[in-house]
């Protein structure tokens, strides 16, 4: 079946099977490299995207369900090839090592800060709780989110 949706602001049309996950379509059919497969079952957060500005595990989302919707990946946060202020905070704090978890972490942070511009530590931990990182020990990620928050 053909579906169409806005991927990071661009209208895309793609032929999908009803059983295809959004993750599979973004990676295998559309060639995205920022959406990562970690577990395929909603326990790592590496595949996260925003669907109509809401966080979704793309591994647990049917591609067909995003028809006519807006899908935002971490690449969609750039403007004019410039990193967003939040992404810059990730860089400054060295909040990525291998980078596998990073797109998910950044999108979780964005969703949190959009809703709650000055979150408490607890609220940051809660927001990040569904995203695993094997490299950084989370400390620099939490620092990045804090420094991007409004005080």
């Amino acid at each position: 079946m053909m579906i169409r949706f806005y991927l990071d602001g661009q209208l895309v049309e793609v032929d999908v099977k009803p059983t295809d996950t959004l993750l599979k379509v973004l990676v295998d059919k559309l060639g995205l490299t920022s959406v990562h497969y970690g577990c395929g079952e909603g326990s790592c957060g590496a595949c996260m995207v925003l669907v109509d500005d809401k966080l979704r595990y793309s591994c647990l989302t049917f591609a067909a369900s995003v028809n006519d919707k807006k899908v935002t990946t971490v690449a969609g946060l750039l403007s004019d090839h410039e990193l967003s202020p939040l992404q810059k905070k990730f860089v400054e704090n060295n909040a990525a090592q291998c980078g596998y978890c990073t797109p998910g972490m950044v999108l979780v942070a964005k969703a949190l800060l959009d809703k709650n511009p000055s979150p408490s530590d607890e609220e940051i931990f809660d927001a990040l709780a569904g995203n695993l990182c094997r490299c950084t020990g989370y400390v620099p990620i939490v620092k990045a989110v804090k420094s991007a928050a409004r005080r």
Partner: peptide, 14 residues
């Protein structure tokens, strides 16, 4: 077989 059985620390455990 999954991260629900093999439990890694998350941000709040640090």
């Amino acid at each position: 077989t999954s991260f629900r059985d093999y439990v890694l620390p998350t941000a709040g455990d640090i």
